[in-house]
Simulated assay, not measured.
Amino acid sequence: MAHHLTTVVLEAAWRRTITEHCQRILQAVEDSPTDVLANLVASTEVVDEAWRRYRRSLDGATRGPYPLPEAA
């Protein structure tokens, strides 16, 4: 159960990270020079790391001692 909760939290964190990244890009589209915009678009390290942490959690969930919850 605890592992499932960790996965849920990591998924929410990944989605929040994407939202924040997209908001920065949208703001840059309106106000920033093109080189700044290009750097923001290319800079995905934080989003990528959140994705890797989420995927590692999912991989562990499929091999871990706790079964995945059934869909309601």
Rank of each mutant, 00 (worst) to 15 (best):
M1W: 08
M1G: 15
A2S: 10
H3T: 03
H3F: 06
H3A: 11
L5A: 12
T6P: 00
T6E: 13
T7L: 12
T7R: 13
T7E: 10
V9K: 13
V9H: 10
E11S: 14
A13H: 11
W14A: 08
W14K: 06
W14Q: 06
R16N: 12
R16S: 13
T17N: 13
I18S: 01
T19L: 09
T19I: 00
E20A: 15
H21P: 01
H21S: 10
H21R: 06
C22F: 04
R24A: 12
R24Y: 00
I25H: 00
I25K: 01
L26T: 01
Q27D: 14
Q27V: 04
A28L: 03
V29A: 10
D31F: 09
D31I: 05
S32W: 00
S32H: 02
T34V: 05
D35G: 00
V36L: 06
L37S: 02
A38S: 08
L40Y: 05
V41R: 02
V41T: 01
A42H: 03
T44N: 02
T44H: 02
E45I: 00
V46C: 06
V46G: 03
V46F: 07
V46S: 15
V47A: 06
D48H: 06
D48V: 04
E49M: 10
E49F: 05
A50Q: 04
A50H: 06
W51S: 09
R53G: 06
Y54R: 14
R56I: 03
R56T: 04
L58I: 09
L58W: 04
G60D: 13
A61I: 03
T62W: 08
T62L: 13
R63S: 06
R63P: 00
P65Y: 08
P65H: 09
P65V: 12
P67C: 07
P67S: 10
L68S: 11
L68K: 11
P69C: 05
E70P: 00
E70Y: 04
A71S: 14
A72Y: 01
